[in-house]
Design a protein around this nucleic acid. Structure first.
Lengths: 236, 236
DNA sequence: AAGTGGTCTAGACCACGCT
DNA sequence: GCGTGGTCTAGACCACTTC
């Protein structure tokens, strides 16, 4: 790999995670680190900026870089992650059932809801996620046929993100997300094991590629007891 | 103000928000900008990095910096914001009622729950938030007496964050947050206008100062229909 | 006063997109 | 090939903490 500052970031991050560098202690100074890694101070600063952004360290002017307790942040459900990645990370027995896979053209209502342009051709996909044997998530996806050609049921059963990034070589860049609690629809009641719960947690997101084109709109409907969202935020 | 790159960030961000620079268009090149603002390219790059992180632009190597549609991100409920700031931003008629204000010493159970050390002296505060006349949020705060001395009911009624930052001159730095849905407690039912809702959305957070000391643990309990969380995330 | 991180510079070379 | 952003450098000066 090329990037020096990323290699340095990974080295230090690894040593913090492994406990080699203790939480609460001070990192070496930027000058020391630039000698140790045989590089300029600005490059060290880039690596430390990444560590800071990921919640590994806190920097204090005149004092140094304090190592934070990463154990409580180690749970990055936040951000942009696919269901498959998440399930793997959590060590859950997870399963996906594709309930619907069809083509769809954007009309007025759908355009309002998804932010796709009128007449755009979409794949419409409904998938139920089974975690530890229970149907707890219903994902309703709308995906651009133009940007993501060649989708099929098999890919949807596995991982759409993997297909987009590995097979198509596209980069998923950013997403706008909205979380709120709603009444279950008949569809929710039918497809999910709601077991007397009176609400579902709905996560609506628009996902964009690196060139700023929107390729996906998703409505992810969770049984409330199985929903958890973890966040690490810095004050602006 | 001193920092050149922040002034440049604010100038460009302002022009994007005002529509002076259109969404979808390309920013001037970094070289052009460095001439325009009479500064080095690295300084321009720092300003653009901020614009990128705040979701104003997307950078594409070899092409330029594309201006994103900020209107849909403009709603930073995400991150670290006080109730007062949020209510002001949303233009709501909001009101806070302090239901409980007393001193508390951390025992085993409380230490588990809040992550404060044993025997630490805390302020324990319960506040109900009224929005447009309805009691929709119950905030249960635990705040370190050692770090935040001189708290009282009046301050809690107004804004604790304002007191910490303005009066005490401390910097709030980062928070770990967890969102989930739970059954309402008797206290919730008593203090909130739940109106037949069977769940509450609970946001648990630990908040830290710049020197990495934890000064606050909060459990914020929301009526589900009044809860919304908006997020802008980049793929790592 | 010494040591730390924060800002800024001017210049170099590389990787990528576009035409 | 040209123009764009991405990386890296070596050095300067400033602001802050600590002793």
């Amino acid at each position: 790999m090329n990037n020096k500052f990323i290699r340095i970031y990974e080295d230090i991050a690894g040593r913090i995670r492994s406990g080699d560098i203790e939480a609460g202690s001070l990192l070496q100074s930027e000058l020391d680190l630039s000698e140790r890694y045989q590089t300029s101070r600005e490059t060290i600063r880039k690596a430390l900026k990444m560590l800071y952004e990921e919640g590994y360290i806190q920097k204090i002017q005149g004092k140094g870089s304090i190592v934070l307790d990463i154990r409580k942040i180690d749970f990055p459900v936040s951000g942009l992650i696919s269901f498959k990645e998440l399930a793997q990370k959590m060590g859950h027995r997870a399963q996906t059932v594709v309930k619907l896979f069809e083509e769809q053209v954007v009309d007025q209502t759908l355009s309002q809801k998804t932010s796709f342009g009128l007449n755009e051709q979409l794949w419409q996909i409904n998938r139920v996620r089974k975690v530890d044997g229970e149907h707890v998530i219903l994902d309703k996806d709308y995906i651009s046929q133009r940007l993501i050609p060649g989708l099929n049921r098999e890919i949807c059963q596995d991982s759409i993100y993997e297909y987009v990034e590995q097979k198509l070589g596209l980069s998923i860049s950013y997403a706008k997300k909205e979380i709120l609690v709603e009444e279950p629809t008949d569809e929710d009641r039918h497809l999910l094991d709601l077991e007397g719960f009176h609400n579902v947690v709905v996560v609506r997101s628009q996902v964009y590629l690196e060139d700023t084109s929107q390729f996906q709109y998703t409505e992810s409907r969770h049984r409330p007891d199985k929903f958890i969202f973890v966040d690490f935020a810095r004050r602006k």
